[in-house]
Amino acid sequence: MTDPIIRIDNLVKSFGTFKVLDGLSFDVMPGEKLALIGPSGSGKTTILRILMTLESISDGHIEICGDQLYHMQRNGREVPADEAHLHKMRSHIGMVFQHFNLFPHKSVLENITLAPILTKGTPRAKAEARAMELLEMVGLADKADARPAQLSGGQKQRVAIARALALQPRIMLFDEVTSALDPELVEEVLLVMKRLAAETDMTMLLVTHEMGFAHEFADRVLFFDKGRIVEQGPPEQIFSNPREERTQSFLRKIIAAGHRV
């Protein structure tokens, strides 16, 4: 048996007095493609942001690649992680955001090469060659010198994916990466992600409202409500044969809203 690459244990997250996540636990196996679905406000984004260390935790433990994410050992005692520890841990994880968050003052190529050059000391020539390969993969090799402002939403998001991939993280987080896009641009991004899922052994966590895509993409689907996992299983089970009433009513609403399943 291999060990999980992510272990979430009794995770609690409160904003003020509001508990968004209340004792959440689940594991993710290396290479697994996980879809997180659930109603708005159920805490899906919060989970990804916590994994990316963009949000602190209130309680519980998270283990990534065998190391504690938010804790470390000092003099044999467990203490909260410091910035150096977080920095080390972040190298395992990449994230693609709903609103792309590209660096507007840098060219497409620089957006991709900046971090490898700075954080991994990759020589510029090598970083650029690698960036061109990635741009090739997302179909944007001709845009290397463009500024993000000159790209369409779908193109921006594909650059953002390339930027995250350039650091070769073992875990990739995707938070509703198509929901800020015009409908006709969604497909090109999903296509890139499908290829990614098929061709790499990266562990991927996907938050999405595109149930059809989740179905195709995921090995396992987690249905969340109010910060808890209501039901999980292979996509066939969750989408065709959901056991829980809440899952069923959520899927009914999604279908009624015109989404494909």
Binding site: M52, T53, L54, E83, H87, R90, S91, I93, G94, M95, F97, H99, N101, L102, F103, H105, L114, A115, L118, T119, R163, A164, L167
Partner: peptide, 23 residues
């Protein structure tokens, strides 16, 4: 957003300021 993108690509605090925020 820009700070968060910097964290996601694992820039250090100094690199964030020097290469992304300040420019």
């Amino acid at each position: 957003d820009q700070y968060e993108a910097c964290i996601a690509v694992n820039l250090t605090r100094f690199q964030r300021m020097r290469h992304v925020i300040f420019p």
